[in-house]
Design a protein around this nucleic acid. Structure first.
Ligand SMILES: [Mn+2]
Ligand SMILES: [Mn+2]
Ligand SMILES: [Zn+2]
Ligand SMILES: [Zn+2]
Lengths: 148, 148
DNA sequence: TTGCTAGTTGCAATTCAGTCGCATCTGTAT
DNA sequence: ATACAGATGCGACTGAATTGCAACTAGCAA
């Protein structure tokens, strides 16, 4: 009978074992938060949520795990226009890349998936002979509600 | 006979007077550096260069002027994939937006202008009814030389 | 020219995000 | 069970950026 923590491993945990990356209590908590997060989290929010699953998680472990997840290409790092300080935000990398729009007035963050974006990346790879690993398109401006 | 500092005002200085923004010795130095910079500068580099024109320029004035230039839409702020610490980079906003690519191996920064990029921004404005003020597409990956 | 004043500056202290060194601990392979 | 590479917690630290405040000055009006 498997332990509760290892039941239904999320995709991030699955990647870790596939790639032979060591799993720890703290990483389990952090990965679970990243997996179930509904929105972009900064490191402090991630720490707070992870501590609820395992009070023993430390800030430096959060940062070290974020670095690992970035290196593995499992998460993306965002500025979200640094509307609120210099911190960065993180989200799971899903199948399809998306654009982020941040409203400079109300702070709302919107996401947008676009074939044109994919075409643009294809153009860069082809015309610049540049092998893309990670891409971030972040747009600042005014949302529909704030535009008028 | 005009003073040397006011001869041939650069475009940034011109914008300042057009918009009734006060001009100071320190701002003159900072604007001149931004105008003549051949590449993306971080705040510390900008400070060093500005000090050569006016040794009296202070770090906080550099940051305050950068904030002003950003608010006025005269410069863009970049991460350049934070390849070298958490600092940000700045460049004059020119007529045409461009994409930044950063090689994760050799650190080279490349720029790329693309109609597809412009089309993508058009799509965002139209489909999301989002009024774009500033946009940043930053790509990390491997340049042609480093790809093989 | 001369003052006036709102806006700007320098400075030092401060905040804040993120990193690091090291002793200790633990996941995993044997 | 044991060994040990690798991960962790802790606290100190770094580096980027901000701030409060007294002093200064650009730009304007008299
Ligand atoms: Mn997102
Ligand atoms: Mn950033
Ligand atoms: Zn809005
Ligand atoms: Zn390269």
């Amino acid at each position: 009978m498997p332990l509760p923590q290892t039941e239904m491993p999320g995709r991030l945990q699955a990647y870790f074992s596939e790639r032979g990356i060591r799993m720890t209590q703290q990483r389990r908590a952090i990965l679970r938060v990243m997996e179930t997060a509904s929105k972009h989290l900064d490191a402090a929010q991630l720490l707070r949520k992870a501590k609820k699953l395992d009070p023993q998680v430390d800030r430096s472990t959060v940062y070290r795990t974020l670095r690992l997840l970035k290196r593995q290409g499992l998460i993306d790092e965002l500025d979200l226009m640094h509307l609120n300080g210099e911190k960065h935000y993180y989200e799971r990398k899903l199948n399809r890349d998306h654009i982020h729009m941040a409203c400079l007035r109300c702070g709302k963050i919107m996401e947008f998936v676009s074939d044109v974006f994919d075409a643009l990346k294809g153009e860069v790879e082809r015309d610049c002979r540049f092998h893309i690993v990670v891409s971030r398109l972040e747009i600042g401006g005014y949302c529909a509600a704030c535009s008028k």
